[in-house]
Amino acid sequence: MVISVIAHSASMTITQKPHVNAPAVVGLSMTFTSTQLRAGGNCQITGAAGDNPAGWTLGLIQLQWIETNWGYYRGRANTDGSCMLQRARPPARPTQGCRDTLAVGAIFVDNNPGLDRTTAAAGARFPIGMTANFFDAPSDQFPLTRVNSLTRQTNFLHEAQLEFHFCTVLSLRNPAGVFQHLKHFYWNVHWQARFEPSNFGNLAAPWVITRAAGALGNKANVSHHVADGAPNDRRFTPIMTAPAAPNCNATATHAATAPNFRESRVWDNFDVRR
């Protein structure tokens, strides 16, 4: 008998749904923060006498498969111009899909040391109960201002939209590195708002922040049920365990540091899909 998961022993529960906070000014940035999503998974493995369970690991894999991330800036007057910062398209963001770990190249989520996985020890007696606990609270920021190189005038953050969509997978890895995906669920966080400084000469003065795009524009969503097995969406399944999958924090940080930008000498309309 080989070591295997006991039938119907795997479960995954979302214990806390996330919420998105209203965008807020912190220093010279407009911040987009959320409260934690929390989830827990478990399973039991069994084997025959003499089977060695050492190295069998239950953990979580999180993939991000959609990113919307743009900011529109405009000057105080029409002749001060406008800018569009796009962080979700190449070259700023080469691909939409990425794997979400702190350590670049890691596969299992690693932000809850000691609790985010269970690794069976040699000699442990079957059946072996394994748990993996998860939390996450994505966030981002846009600078409040940007100098328009065409007009050389300060442009102010006027609107932004951010959407991060994730799939979180409970997965069992054997010592040979083969994964068995047991459960998964989807979740996302959305922000969209318009901004206006109340005092263009003093950015620390309160900003007028108007949330936009209706009920779905500023919301966190979690799938209604946890699904069995592996996700089958080809947009991100190829990177689930691929060693060279892009890292989400690194990819997003690069795009925030070096966004694609378009500028105009007037208050222009930009296509946010580009």
Binding site: Q36, L102, V109, D136, A137, P138, S139, D140, N249, A252
Partner: peptide, 18 residues
Amino acid sequence: SFCSSQCPSTCRLDGPAP
């Protein structure tokens, strides 16, 4: 925190260090 460790940051995976 691991990612939003000091100033507003760009974080997809984050959380408090244990």
